[in-house]
Computed example of a mutant assay.
Amino acid sequence: MKTKLVLGAVLLLGLQLQAQEVSRVKEISLKEEFTNPLASPDGKYAILTQEHNHGVFLLNIQTQEITPISPNEGIGYGYSWNPDSNTFYYKEKKEKEYFSDAKVKGYSISSKKITSLDINHNFLPSYNGKNDVVVHTNPSTLRIEATNVKTLKTWLVTGDEGQYYNAILSNDGTKVAVHKGAEIWVYDVNGSEKGKLIGQGIATAWSSDDRFLIGFLDESRDGHNISNSEILLFDVENSNTRKLTSTENQIEMFPSLYGNNQIIFSEERTGKIYTSTLKF
């Protein structure tokens, strides 16, 4: 399993996690390889994709059943959940279309129906169907902006100098985690304050109470291929970082928090998906 997102490729020989940080590690038994799991708020489901962001899939975490939602190439990134845990949103494009032509689709688990949404695909993954405000990268300036989806009013969030990417809106809609090189910063969504440096790595999700960010930090020995990756927990208020895994030959990436202390993540060499319990 390879992934385009970060700083390289991958390696693994079995899964071992630090017992004092996470416990009850379980492999979800799947026939194919997957990556980038995003758990629903209620922890019953997760959205997955495959190598090179190929396709969008729905995983029932309890039954371990996989439902293909879309087979299209390159669309398995930037998806998001509605807080009701019944609907999620993803990008869709036709085979010969450019990514700039992508549309936003919504999938309802209860009705098994797909609907089209009249919103800019760049608003994902911060769009959740409930909050009026979304955050996104301006492709011209590489600054983070916020937009009210009802009024279409847009304003600058990252007033500091630099190039930013991968904005993640907090659950309460008041804070934004952004990336500047290898650094993770948090800004107020209203753009009125300077950013706060949280740590280094790739943040992937907020905790339900917005006190923590979870993410990972990969390493490359040759500058091209990923040689290792560990899961990290970032304390937003105190700017402290905890390493949740410590493995030399295993590539744990793309963690997602759900419930009070559950984690779902992928192992990138094998394409396996795991769940575990975090000890706060």
Rank of each mutant, 00 (worst) to 15 (best):
Ile144Ala: 03
Gln250Phe: 01
Asn238Arg: 05
Ile109Arg: 00
Thr141Asn: 08
Phe216His: 01
Gly201Val: 02
Lys94Phe: 12
Gly173Asn: 09
Ile47Val: 14
Ser40Cys: 05
Val134Gly: 06
Ala167Leu: 03
Asn122Ala: 13
Thr151Arg: 15
Asn72Thr: 07
His52Asn: 11
Val178Leu: 13
Ser207Leu: 06
Thr277Cys: 06
Asn260Thr: 08
Thr141Glu: 11
Lys103Phe: 02
Tyr274Arg: 01
Leu156Val: 11
Ser111Glu: 07
Asn53His: 10
Pro125Trp: 09
Glu268Asn: 08
Tyr98Ser: 14
Lys93His: 05
Leu58Asn: 08
Lys272Gln: 15
Phe280Leu: 15
Ile114Lys: 09
Asn131Trp: 10
Val178Ser: 14
Pro68Ile: 09
Lys180Met: 02
Glu252His: 10
Tyr77Ala: 05
Gln163Asn: 11
Thr245Leu: 01
Ser229Tyr: 01
Asp160Leu: 14
Ile184Arg: 07
Ala203Trp: 00
Glu219Gln: 14
Leu213Arg: 15
Ile264Cys: 05
Tyr45Cys: 01
Gly43Arg: 01
Gln62Met: 08
Thr151His: 13
Thr147His: 08
Arg24Val: 07
Thr270Gln: 01
Lys279Trp: 13
Trp81Gln: 03
Asn72Met: 10
Phe234Val: 00
Ser100Ala: 10
Leu17Asn: 06
Pro68Gly: 13
Val22Gly: 12
Ser239Glu: 07
Leu17Ala: 13
Gly14Asp: 14
Gly55Met: 02
Asn122Glu: 14
Ser23Tyr: 05
Gln163His: 10
Ser207Thr: 05
Glu73Cys: 07
Leu142Gln: 08
Glu193Ile: 10
Lys196Cys: 10
Ala102Asn: 02
Gly199Pro: 03
Ile144Lys: 05
Ser23Met: 08
Lys113Met: 13
Gly201His: 03
Ile66His: 15
Ala146Ser: 14
Gly8Lys: 04
Tyr258Pro: 09
Val236Trp: 04
Ser111Lys: 11
Phe254Gln: 05
Thr49Lys: 03
Trp155Leu: 15
Gln163Ser: 09
Leu213Met: 09
Ser229Phe: 04
Glu21Trp: 00
Trp185Thr: 04
Tyr79Trp: 04
Lys194Ser: 15
Phe57Ser: 07
Gly159His: 15
Ser276Ile: 06
Gly162Thr: 02
Pro68Gln: 14
Glu193Arg: 11
Ser116His: 12
Arg24Ile: 07
Asp210Val: 13
Asp160Ala: 12
Lys272Tyr: 06
Tyr187Glu: 14
Lys4Ser: 05
Leu58Tyr: 09
Tyr107Pro: 05
Ile75Met: 07
Pro139Lys: 12
Asp188His: 14
